[in-house]
Design a protein around this nucleic acid. Structure first.
Lengths: 330, 330
DNA sequence: CACAACGATGTTTACGTAAACATAGGCGGT
DNA sequence: ACCGCCTATGTTTACGTAAACATCGTTGTG
C-alpha cells in the first residue's frame, strides 16, 4: 500500500480510502490512485484487514462426510448463501466420527479464522463433544438433537415420515413396513419414530424394523429379507438409495412394484425419477437448509445472542410410480 | 495475549513462545502461562498470525457445483489432504458457469486469504477466464485442458474409456455404442474420443453418438432411443447414472442386460453395485485426485515455481454383471 | 574465583490496514 | 473582508502476534 501511495503521490490513508470506496476523495485523486494500484498490481492484504476489523467474513463448516448427497447439497446451499452475503466458507472435515476427532476439529476451529460455525452433524456424537465448542461463538447445528443449546436447522423428518406412511395407508394398505437407516443417525431415528407413531395413531400393526446403512446395497439386503414376509404390501424406506436396492431385490424375487408392493423413499435424489419404477419419495430441500444455517449464523454474528431452538424445513410428498393400491386378496 | 502475560506475570513474548510450542521456556513457566491461557480462555488470533507469517495456511477451491458425486468426492479428498498437512480449505462457489461469474470468482479470490488455488473446472470456460488469475499464484486445475499453462490433475479418462471399450470387444461384441455426456464437459469429450479411437484401432464400425447430460433421466431417454436400433449389443455409457437410466429403458423395452445388451458405465458410484444388474464400470479415484491437487498446490507454495503439465490418476475396470457375450445370431 | 557461555525471559519492532484525529485550503454568509 | 465550517488529504496510532535483539542470572570450566 505504501508503494501505491508513493507512486500516486498521496498518503497511504488515501489509498485505503480509494480501495474501500470511501467517500471524501476527489475523482481526480481517485483515478490517480487506481492507476497506481493497477500498475503495481496492488491487492489488499486480507490478513491485515481482518486484524483491523476483527472479523474474517468467513463461516466455518464442520462435517463428517461429503459422500452423501444430503451433506453435499447442504454445503452447496451454505456456500451459495454465504457468498451472496459476502462471506467465505472454510471447510473443517472430520475424518472419523470418533469423539476425539470431533474435539480435535473444534479445537482447530478455535484458532481458525472464522466468525461463525455451522456443524453438519448427522450422527450421535455432538453431545459428547460440545464441551470443546468455544462458548459464545456463533454456532448453528444441522440435523442433531442439540436444539436446547444451539440453534438447529433441519429438514422436517417427522412430518416427512408421516407423509410417507399416510400416503401408503390412504392407498388402502393394511400396514407399512420400514427400512430404517443406521441407529447413529438422527435423521434415521426421527423417520423411524414418525413411522411408528403414524401407524399407531392409525391403529395399525407395527411390523418389526429392518435396518440398513443408507447404501443401496443394504437396501438390497433388506429387500431380500422382506421377500420372506408374504404379507408385505407397502414399505417406507428411509432413503432413496436403499429404496433402489430394495426394489431391485423385490424384482429379483418376483414381487412387482407397485402391483404387489408399494415403496416410498426419502430424499428425492435427482436419480429417483429414473428408477424402475420412478420412485415415490419425500422431497427435502437441502439448499434451503443451508441457506437457513447461514442466515442463523450471521444473525448471531450481528446480534450477538445465540437463540437455541429448532428451525424445520418443510418436506413434501412426490408421488411417482412406485406406489399404488395393495393387491386384492384372493 | 497481553492479559494472559499479565495474569501469568510474564511478558507477551513468553506467552507467544508457549502458544507456539517453542523451546526455551522452563516447564514451570510454561505451566503458569498455560493455566492463565485456560483461565482467560485465550485463543491466538489467526489474523494477526497470518499477518506476521504472510501465509494463511489455507487453500482456495473454486468449483461450479457440488451436485455431482465426482466434485463432492474430489473436494472431500482435497479437504482430507489439506487438513492432514495443516491447511484449511476455503470454498469459492461459482453459481453460474458464465464467463462473468468465473471472472468474478477469480477476482474475489485475489482478496481472499488463500495461499494457493485449486480450480475444479469440469466444463469449457477456464480458457476464457484465465486472464483473471493472479499471475504467479499457485494454481492447480482439475479436469480441464489448461495443462499447458497450469498443473492439471485429472482422472485418466482416455485410458478408462479404452478399458471399457476393450472389455466389451474382448467379449466378442461387433462394435460398441456410446452415450456421451454434455459437449461442454472435458471428461465427456475425452471419454468420447477414447471410445472412438479404440473402436477405430480395432477396425470396428463407429456408430453415431448419443448424448446425455449425466442425469439418469437423460440416460433413460438415450436408452429409449437405442431400443430402435436392433443391432445394438454393447453400450459404453459415459457415467453410471446415465447407465442406470439406460438399463431401465432397455428393461422396459424387453431387452435384457446383459443377455441382449451389455452395458459399461463410468465412475463406479457406490450404488452401482446395487443396480439391476450390478453395473460393470470404470472406477475412478476421486480422493486421489483431490490428494494430488493439494500436493501440487503446496509444492508450488514451497518451491515457488509452477510447473504446467498433466498428472493422470489411473482408472480400473470393475467387472460386474451388466456385461457378457453378445447374443448368438440365429 | 573469574569469566565465558548459555539458557530463560523481557523489550523493541514490524507485519498491512484503517479508524481517529489533525491540518489546510476553499467557500459562503454576514 | 473576516470568520467559521466543510471538504480533501495527511499523520498518528492500534489491531495481535512473533522475529530479532537485549538482558540477566546461572552454570561450568580453567
Amino acid at each position: 500500500m505504501a508503494d501505491v501511495a508513493k507512486r500516486a503521490g498521496v498518503s497511504s490513508q488515501t489509498v485505503s480510502r480509494v480501495s474501500n470506496g470511501h467517500p471524501g476523495v476527489i475523482p481526480a485523486t481517485r483515478e490517480v490512485v487506481q492507476a497506481a494500484m493497477r500498475e503495481l498490481g496492488y491487492r489488499p492484504n486480507s490478513a491485515a484487514r481482518a486484524l483491523k476489523w476483527g472479523s474474517f467474513r468467513t463461516i466455518g463448516v464442520i462435517l463428517f462426510s461429503l459422500a452423501n448427497v444430503g451433506n453435499s447439497k447442504t454445503l452447496e446451499g451454505i456456500a451459495a448463501e454465504a457468498t451472496a452475503r459476502g462471506y467465505g466458507i472454510t471447510l473443517i472435515p472430520v475424518a472419523m466420527p470418533t469423539e476425539a476427532a470431533v474435539i480435535g476439529a473444534f479445537g482447530r476451529l478455535e484458532e481458525l479464522a472464522v466468525d461463525a460455525v455451522i456443524v453438519i452433524m448427522e450422527i450421535h456424537l455432538l453431545d459428547a463433544a460440545t464441551v470443546g465448542l468455544p462458548p459464545g461463538a456463533p454456532v448453528v447445528v444441522v440435523d442433531s438433537n442439540a436444539g436446547d443449546r444451539y440453534p438447529v436447522v433441519d429438514t422436517d423428518q417427522s412430518r416427512g415420515g408421516q407423509l410417507a406412511v399416510e400416503h401408503l395407508l390412504s392407498l388402502g394398505h393394511e400396514t407399512v413396513w420400514h427400512v430404517a437407516g443406521p441407529e447413529e443417525s438422527f435423521a434415521s431415528e426421527r423417520r423411524l419414530a414418525a413411522w411408528r407413531e403414524t401407524l399407531t395413531a392409525a391403529g395399525k400393526d407395527v411390523p418389526r424394523v429392518l435396518r440398513g446403512d443408507w447404501s443401496a446395497e443394504s437396501g438390497y439386503a433388506a429387500g431380500k429379507e422382506l421377500l420372506a414376509e408374504e404379507s408385505v404390501t407397502a414399505v417406507f424406506v428411509a432413503n432413496d438409495q436403499m429404496a433402489l436396492g430394495l426394489m431391485n431385490a423385490l424384482h429379483e424375487g418376483g414381487r412387482r412394484v407397485p402391483e404387489d408392493v408399494s415403496v416410498v423413499g426419502f430424499d428425492d435424489l435427482p436419480d429417483s425419477a429414473a428408477y424402475l419404477p420412478p420412485l415415490t419419495t419425500i422431497h427435502q430441500d437441502f439448499a434451503e437448509v443451508g441457506r437457513l444455517c447461514v442466515e442463523g449464523a450471521l444473525d448471531q454474528v450481528d446480534n450477538g445472542a445465540s437463540q437455541p431452538g429448532v428451525t424445520l424445513v418443510p418436506t413434501r410428498l412426490v408421488v411417482r410410480a412406485s406406489t399404488g393400491s395393495p393387491p386384492r386378496r384372493d
